[in-house]
């Protein structure tokens, strides 16, 4: 299957993707995410959402060694937890869960207030690519996964609470696990 990746692709450009023997092509229409999110939060009873604004240059750290020697930390906000753990609550739950890297995919669950979880429950790799990343490790593309992946339930309305409550807890785990790289997966 030939699948192309191209940097800097823009919306509105013609895409042609070969999936098996079927070639799909068409102009990608822009999705009005901002308006959708604003409506979702309105529906949930919140005042108008204030987007975070960052005007400074993003922090940037180049990779210090080859991927094949890197330990990757996976962080996902799809409300994933393992069977036996406490599920996430309805919203603004700033707790995190640690999912062992060898957890069977069938033992994963989701609890999230803001997306339709039917497919994520059928195949958690949709939102939490633990099995997919294990494949990259087996292939030798990645060195190894951190002993745990870390999850929380996104849609936390307050960026301040993310900064003050979620970030320190996650960062401590990543440091303790001595990860070399981190993959962040929102839903």
């Amino acid at each position: 299957m030939a699948v192309g990746l191209f940097p800097g692709a823009r919306r509105g450009r013609l895409l042609a993707v070969e999936r098996g023997k079927r070639v799909l092509s068409g102009v990608v229409e822009p999705i009005a995410y901002i308006q959708r999110l604003t409506r979702m939060y309105e529906h949930l009873g919140y005042p108008a959402y204030q987007w975070v604004r960052n005007d400074d240059r993003p922090p940037f750290v180049p990779l210090s060694k080859p991927l094949a020697e890197c330990r990757l930390g996976l962080i996902a906000s799809g409300g994933i937890y393992a069977a036996g753990q406490v599920a996430f609550h309805f919203k603004d739950d700033t707790s995190i869960r640690a999912i062992p890297r060898e957890a069977p995919i069938a033992s994963l669950r989701t609890a999230h207030f803001a997306y339709d979880q039917a497919d994520a429950r059928a195949d958690p790799n949709c939102v939490f690519p633990l099995g997919t990343l294990r494949g990259l490790v087996a292939e030798g593309v990645l060195g190894e996964l951190a002993s745990h992946a870390y999850t929380f339930m996104g849609g936390i309305y307050s960026a301040r609470r993310v900064q003050e409550e979620v970030a320190p807890a996650l960062v401590q785990r990543l440091i303790d696990e001595r990860v070399d790289i981190a993959l962040l997966v929102p839903v």
Partner: peptide, 20 residues
Amino acid sequence: MPVLARVIEGLGIPTVTVTM
């Protein structure tokens, strides 16, 4: 997630965010 990505990268860990 953008807040987290910046915090983690700021601590010296390279990050990538997959996003819709």
